[in-house]
Amino acid sequence: MAVDANDPVASIPRDTQQSAEDQLHRHLAEGRYREAFEVLVAEYRDRIFTLAFGILRNEHTAEDMTQEILLRIWKGLPGYRRTASISTWVYAISRNVCFTELKRRAARATVSMSDPEIQDKVDSTVSSQMPGGELGHALDVQALLGKLPEHYRRVIVLFYLEDKSYNAVADMLGIPLGTVKTYLHRAKLEFLKLIRMEESRVNW
């Protein structure tokens, strides 16, 4: 069949006339995983980075997570089944990797309470934002925070010390927004009770 030189589509290689999804499925069906991965990277890399940055709000971390996501995708290609579209599959992997990173950062934030460099911030936070701040100022605030249940301690650290929003705390810990607010309220009440008890002990 002759090619019409005046037809711009006719001069385009056949692969490029297909959608990226079609190319991916064809390569995967033929077991050509490297070719499928190359198409996927060209089609989705920028979208993956945009999603990662939107969740993590840090360009360097988003770039690192983009590489991690692409690695997960490469390893997962042989096991991909067409129960979901490629885009849905890529999105699910991307979201899972990013939220796993958020939870890891949340865990690190909890550990960071023992860092003496943040003692001043802990004290000022208690004084300015938490009930009983004036009483707590002369006490070992870090030790008192350490007595809170871990789920309360994490929301206190992220919200007050890391300056995260309610929504960010919910995303990082993988819990509903309402639960974050409930934990913060209960944590402050529990913390105030600990301060009162410690104050009574000191003044005994």
Rank of each mutant, 00 (worst) to 15 (best):
A2D: 13
V3H: 10
A5M: 14
V9Q: 11
V9G: 03
V9K: 10
A10N: 06
S19W: 02
E21M: 04
L24M: 11
H25I: 04
L28V: 08
V39K: 04
E43W: 06
E43I: 01
R45L: 00
D46M: 01
I48C: 02
F49W: 04
L51I: 02
L51T: 03
F53P: 00
G54S: 01
L56T: 01
R57D: 06
E59M: 00
T61Q: 03
D64S: 04
T66R: 09
Q67I: 07
E68N: 12
I69K: 08
L70Y: 09
L71K: 14
W74R: 12
G76T: 11
Y80N: 06
R82H: 13
T83Y: 10
T83Q: 14
T83K: 11
A84W: 11
A84G: 13
S87T: 15
T88W: 12
W89C: 10
A92N: 15
A92E: 12
R95K: 15
V97R: 13
C98F: 11
K103A: 13
R104E: 11
A107L: 13
R108N: 12
T110R: 13
D115S: 10
P116F: 05
E117L: 11
E117K: 12
E117D: 15
I118L: 09
I118D: 06
I118R: 12
D120V: 06
D123Y: 07
V126E: 08
S127C: 05
P131C: 09
G133S: 08
E134W: 09
H137E: 11
A138N: 11
L139R: 08
G146A: 08
R154G: 02
L158Q: 02
Y160D: 08
S165T: 14
S165C: 07
M172H: 06
L173T: 04
I175V: 10
K181Q: 13
K181M: 09
F191W: 01
L192P: 00
I195G: 03
R201Q: 11
V202Q: 15
V202A: 14
N203A: 15
N203I: 12
W204H: 14
W204D: 14
